[in-house]
Amino acid sequence: MSETLLEVRDLRVSFGRRTGPPWRRGATREFVAVDGVSLDVGPDETVGLVGESGSGKTTVARAVVGLVRPDAGTVTVDGHRLGPVGRRPAALQRAVQMVFQDPRSSLNPRMTVAAIVDEAWRTHPVSAPAGDRTAALHRLLDDVGLDTSVARQHAGELSGGQCQRVSIARALAVKPRLLVCDEAVSALDVSVQAQILRLLVDLRVRHRLSMLFISHDLGVVHQIADRIAVMRGGVLVEQGPAGDVLGAPRHEYTQALVGAALELNTES
């Protein structure tokens, strides 16, 4: 058993960007979205990945779950090197699950909640409950704070917060080791955002989950992350314990980020 659960080494991801007008097949120029990022997530650890738009944080997440193919570098989970989704052994694919930003577009609105969870079980039969699936489903819904009556409802009938709870239940259904949350609470109303953050904090303890938690909101990240990594322009500029990075940032970009972030000062 290794010390780290997720090990990202010298990750480089680039995209071809076409130059010139669309009707002319001109040269494509390479755009490097992630340039030599190395990052570890330990067992039971939550690492926050922060940065502004275009910093490459989402691309790192997509490389970790296997949705983009890196040009160079490795992604290792529990000592096993990961290829792209579809070429991964099922057990490893199952070990890394993702929760997306927009719960409405990441769930099929015409599927019932029961069907959504069941699909996860059919994809990974190893994780499917041996006995009564309904009872297992109800336990799962209870775990994410949803009433069991939600099982029969279609995703399209649910509120944003409920949808995000279903996304989390779907991810948990296959008993992952690492949960990758990409702006998982950013689209929610603040009062609902607090609920979902609270839920994630509870779940990581209850299920001994590791998390890679991506957000542009430093305040949100601080509520959940043990360590924080800061990205800018595809490069990791600083990482360390959450309190240190936010309390005494060393890199001038982190200082600018922390300085620009608004705080609610309610002290008299």
């Binding site: 603040v190 009062s191 955002q193 607090a194 953050l197 909101d217 430093l218 305040g219 949100v220 601080h222 509520q223 936010l246 309390g247 922390v258 972030a261 705080e263 609610l264 309610t266």
Partner: peptide, 8 residues
């Protein structure tokens, strides 16, 4: 007010 995630 209580729901606003603080940095500190």
């Amino acid at each position: 007010v209580d729901s606003v995630p603080a940095i500190r």
